[in-house]
Design a protein around this nucleic acid. Structure first.
Lengths: 222, 222
DNA sequence: GAGGTCCATGAAGATTTCTTAAGGCAACCG
DNA sequence: CGGTTGCCTTAAGAAATCTTCATGGACCTC
């Protein structure tokens, strides 16, 4: 497993340095920023696995940052606060924070909580479209409760179509995203795979899940 | 098997029962008590590996219990509190608590913290997936009560697969995490080790524990 | 050094998956 | 209505992947 990438946004230089060392010690890849602005743009660029965010930043309110991150992204966020009161906690959680930790804290505790969040997230790589659910990390597909056994390609193809339910994907797009290479122009591989997936969906009770758009491509019913 | 022994002292019967089940599920041996007095004497007799202690007991103050335990013993103590304020926390830590957790909490978090404490003491870390338990510090594997003798590589590999039960790990991931280096692309070491582990699991009665996901990798049933 | 365990390799065999190709069906258009 | 195009189905061979087995070497223990 790739090391998890943690992004720290904390203006106090000592704490920042301390956290960086502790988290690196714990096996994470760490990058750290001192201001809300720089941190926020780094979240966009680095796409870290988790953000540790100090509440008392000089430029931007922590809650505001959390909200902005949540707006485009669902990276887990753990908030660090100096004050430990219920009101702040509620506000933070409403702003989209996943967990919250009052200073002073043990780095062990922070690490434990980071792991809790990362575990949660990994378990939650599930995409649901109506009755259909695709669990990417387990590579399992379900229609309701019933498992649908898909081959690797079939799974990738269906997962791709589900990445934006309703949107139509051209063969070209499908080929380059699922196959990753150019296929002979005469090939009807995509069609065949679609047919096979449909057949398996039908067996499980799913009709009309994949819509074909003549002259364009395919889409899952959104 | 030398499962770690957790002692719970908690007067709320529902929480008590819930914690017992969750911790047993996580592979610990659990005994639980409803009052400070009974819990305190049980600590003396059972010499548990860790104590989970509710702060709001009817007979004895939680801090008082922590102090008394500390007086004769240095079993790790994790305190559960209803209120989450700094004063209480400081008092608890001064009384000898090792960690502290405010209700409501996720059992996952409690388990993580328990493991943190146990690891601090003697490096114990038990992972349980169905009938299978792996004790990382002793490097022993069990199917139910029966020990499975695994070679070092086999143990590491199985432990890695169990780090997120259900999730599929690619050969690549396995190689870099268990072997720590790139193996010649022609190598089928991973496969062979998987086969050997399966064979040993079968001997102990475990069938279908490791699922192979064609074209992707392997996963333990979760 | 003898015996053991563990690890890596290669190759055969079994299994699943992928692709191709050909014929049929359905929609669109004059 | 007939031609054209695009899509669906099916089946079979090709390709890729997984399992198993046998072998040899490295290492440790006695």
């Amino acid at each position: 497993m790739m090391r998890k990438h943690i992004l720290i946004v904390e203006d106090d230089h000592d704490i920042n340095r301390f956290l960086t060392l502790e988290l690196e010690e714990a096996g994470f890849q760490v990058s750290s920023y001192g201001t809300g602005i720089s941190g926020l743009s780094a979240v966009r660029e680095d796409t870290p696995d988790l953000v540790v965010l100090d509440l008392g930043l000089p430029d931007l309110n922590g809650a505001e940052i959390a909200r902005r991150i949540r707006h485009t992204d669902d990276t887990p966020i753990i908030i660090l606060t100096a004050a430990d009161d219920v009101g702040t906690k509620v506000e933070m959680l409403n702003a989209g924070a996943d967990d919250y930790l009052a200073k002073p804290f043990h780095s062990d505790e922070l690490i434990a909580r980071i792991n809790v969040q990362l575990r949660k997230r990994n378990g939650a790589m599930v995409r649901k479209v109506g009755e259909l659910s695709l669990d990417a990390s387990r590579r399992q597909a379900f229609w309701g409760e019933e498992e649908i056994r898909l081959s690797p390609r079939e799974f990738d193809l269906l997962l791709y179509l589900c990445s934006q339910p309703g949107r139509v994907y051209s063969r070209q797009e499908i080929e380059s995203n699922v196959w990753g290479e150019e296929l002979p122009p005469s090939s009807n591989v995509v069609d065949v795979h679609i047919a096979n997936i449909r057949s398996k969906l039908r067996d499980a009770g799913g009709y009309g899940v994949i819509r074909t758009v003549r002259g364009v491509g395919y889409a899952v019913k959104g």
